[in-house]
Design a binder for these strands. Structure first.
Lengths: 333, 333
DNA sequence: CTGTTAGCGCTTTCAG
DNA sequence: CTGAAAGCGCTAACAG
C-alpha cells in the first residue's frame, strides 16, 4: 500500500505539502501542486482514512441502527438514507437491532468505537434506559428514527395518532361498529400512538372502548395468532385495522386461510402502504408514510447537529397520506 | 473522550498492559487484570477502533455495494448479510451503486480508503473494466454477489439458466407457443443468463426463436413500456415470464391496466418470489432464489478469503426452488 | 508477568 | 509558499 510519504518522496516535497494539496487546505505553488498530483496519479495513492480520522477526530461516516428484517418500511428507509448520506460524501455503517435492546447496545457501541460522526437510531422498545443513557454519556450527535423515545434528542417520525384515528373514522362512517386493531410490536412508541389513535377514533365515532378488540402482536407467529384470536371472538369485528407494514401481510394470510372475503366478510385498512397494494384484490386501502421525506429529514437534522451540537432538540412529525382504495368497502373513487 | 493512557494511569500500569488485558493477547497477573478492568469500568473507556485499525492494519469491517433501490431481492440480501457479518463481530459499510459504474467506483474507493477487510460487490453492468481492475490492483479480498462478472474472483449467485428454461418448459407443457420474456437490466450476467435459459427452454420445447418475444427492460418506465410493446405485438404472447423481482410488479401493473386476466388472457410466471406472492389472485407461480443461502455463503467465502487470500477463486451457483402456484394456469395442487 | 519504545499514516501548529 | 516535528490512540516487538 502506497503511503503519503511515498508520494512526497516521489514529488520531492514534504508530507505536509502533499496533505495540503490533497485537502486544499493551504495555498501551494501551482507547479508544486502539479508534481504532487502527478505523483499521486503515478502511484495510485489512496489516502488512509483511518489515519486521517485519527488525526482529525472525524471519520466522515455515520451509523444507522434499526430493525430491517422485521420491517420492510425500514428497508425503504435504509435506501433513502443511504442515498442522502452518500450525497453528503459520508459512508454509512449499517446494523440491525433485531428489536433487541442487548443487540442494539452492542451495535451502538460498535459504532461509537468506530468513531462515527453521528448516529441514526430506531430505538428498540426496551431501550428507554441503557442505550439512551449511554448515548447521552458519549455526547454523540444522534437523531432517533420513527420512534419518539426521548424528548432530549432529535426525532423524526410519522404522525401516527391522527392517521390511525382517521382510519377508524373512515370505517365507522361505513357503518362498522366492531372495529378490530392488530397492533404492532409491543412497547414501541409507534404502537402506543397508533393504539391511542384507534381509541380516539372509536370515541369520536361514538363507539365504546372494548379492550378485546385490540390484538397485541409480536413476532410473526404471534401476529397471526393475535389476528385469529380477534376473529374467534364471540362477536368478531366486522372491520380490521392493521397496525403496520409486516402485520398487514400476516393479517391477509390469516384472512385468506379462513376464507374470509374482503371487504364483505371483514373490511380491512392498513397503516403503511406497499408498492403492490393495488395489485391485491380488492386493492388495499392504507395510510402511507412518507418514507423518503422521513429519511431525508433525519439525515438533514443529523448533519446539522454534527455541525452544531448545541442545537436544541427538534422533534418532527411527518404527515401521512391516505390512499383510498377498495379493501375498506367503499368501491372507492 | 477517555483514552487508554487514562486507564493505564488509573490502574497504575502501562498502556501495553491495558492493551493486553483488553485483547487477551498475553498473560497478565489476575490481580493486575482486575485493576485494569475496574479502571475501564470506572472511566467508561471505549477503545478507539481507528487507532487500533491503524496499528493492526485490520478494521473488522467489510463493505457491501449493491443496488438496493432497484431491487427488493437485494434488500433481503442486505438483511441476511448484515446478520451474518454482525455475528462474525464485524461491522458493515453499506453503499448503493444505483447500477451506475461511476458511482460504483466511487463507492468501492471509499470502502478501500476506509480500509475494509473485505468487500462484497454486486457489480454493475458496465463494471467489467474499471472497478474490477481497480480491485485487482488493491489485492483486497472480494466476493462478487449475484453476478458472474469475473472468473478471477469469488462469486456467489443463483443458477439462472436452467431455472429460466424450466419456466419456459412449464408454460410450453401447458400448450403455450408464444411465450414472452420481460428481461432484466441490460448487460447484467443475470439478465444474459436468463435470456439464454429462455432460449434453451424454447428450443427444448420445440418452439422457435422469435427475438420479438423478448422485451429488454431498464428502469421502471422502460420496463412498463417494454411490457406494453410485447402485448401490442400483432401476435401477442399468450404467456409471460418476468425476468426479475421488480419487473414482476411492473408487469402486473401493466396487465391490470390493460384489464388482462391471468392466466386466461395471459399466463404469468416469474423469476423471484415474494412474501406476498400467494396473496395475489391468482397466486403467483415463481422461481425463488435462496436469498439467505446466497448471503450466508458469500460472507463465508469472504471471511475465508480474508483469512487466506491465496485461495483459488470459487464460483458458486445456488439452486433455485420452483414455487408452483396458480398464475401459470395449472390450477395447481 | 510487565514496561519501554517504536511505529501505523495522516494532520497541523510552528517556524522559516 | 514550504518543511520539521509533534501528536492522534493503539499495538507489538524487544527487553527485562
Amino acid at each position: 500500500m502506497v503511503t503519503m510519504a511515498d508520494v512526497a518522496r516521489l514529488a520531492g516535497v514534504s508530507a505536509a505539502t502533499v496533505s495540503h494539496v490533497i485537502n486544499g487546505t493551504r495555498a501551494v505553488r501551482p507547479a508544486t501542486a502539479q508534481r504532487v498530483l502527478a505523483a499521486v496519479e503515478r502511484t495510485g495513492y489512496t489516502p488512509n482514512t483511518l489515519a486521517r480520522g485519527l488525526a482529525r477526530a472525524r471519520t466522515q461516516s455515520i451509523g444507522l441502527a434499526l430493525s430491517g428484517v422485521r420491517n420492510p418500511f425500514f428497508m425503504e428507509l435504509v435506501g433513502t438514507i443511504e442515498a442522502q448520506v452518500g450525497r453528503a460524501g459520508l459512508v454509512l455503517l449499517l446494523g440491525d437491532t433485531g428489536e433487541d435492546p442487548q443487540q442494539e447496545l452492542r451495535l451502538v457501541q460498535a459504532f461509537v468505537q468506530r468513531r462515527v460522526d453521528g448516529l441514526l437510531l430506531a430505538p428498540t422498545a426496551g431501550a428507554g434506559d441503557r442505550v439512551l443513557r449511554y448515548l447521552a454519556a458519549q455526547s454523540l450527535p444522534v437523531v432517533l428514527l420513527d420512534r419518539f423515545a426521548s424528548t432530549a434528542l432529535d426525532v423524526v417520525g410519522t404522525e401516527n395518532e391522527e392517521a390511525t384515528a382517521g382510519l377508524v373514522e373512515h370505517l365507522a362512517a361505513l357503518g362498522h361498529r366492531r372495529i378490530g386493531l392488530v397492533a404492532g410490536f409491543p412497547g414501541l412508541s409507534t404502537t402506543v400512538e397508533r393504539i391511542r389513535g384507534y381509541r380516539v377514533g372509536m370515541l369520536r365515532s361514538g363507539l365504546g372502548e372494548d379492550a378485546k378488540l385490540v390484538a397485541h402482536s409480536g413476532w410473526r407467529a404471534a401476529t397471526r395468532g393475535a389476528t385469529r384470536a380477534l376473529l374467534d371472538l364471540p362477536e368478531p369485528p366486522t372491520a380490521l385495522i392493521s397496525g403496520a407494514n409486516h402485520i398487514t401481510i400476516d393479517v391477509l394470510h390469516v384472512l385468506a386461510e379462513r376464507g374470509l372475503r374482503i371487504p364483505d366478510d371483514v373490511a380491512l385498512v392498513a397503516f403503511d402502504d406497499f408498492d403492490w397494494a393495488d395489485l391485491l384484490v380488492p386493492r388495499l386501502t392504507a395510510v402511507a408514510q412518507q418514507t423518503a421525506l422521513i429519511g431525508a429529514r433525519a439525515v438533514e437534522l443529523l448533519l446539522a447537529r454534527i455541525e452544531d451540537p448545541t442545537l436544541p432538540p427538534r422533534q418532527e412529525r411527518i404527515p401521512t397520506t391516505f390512499v383510498h382504495r377498495d379493501s375498506c368497502g367503499c368501491r372507492a373513487r
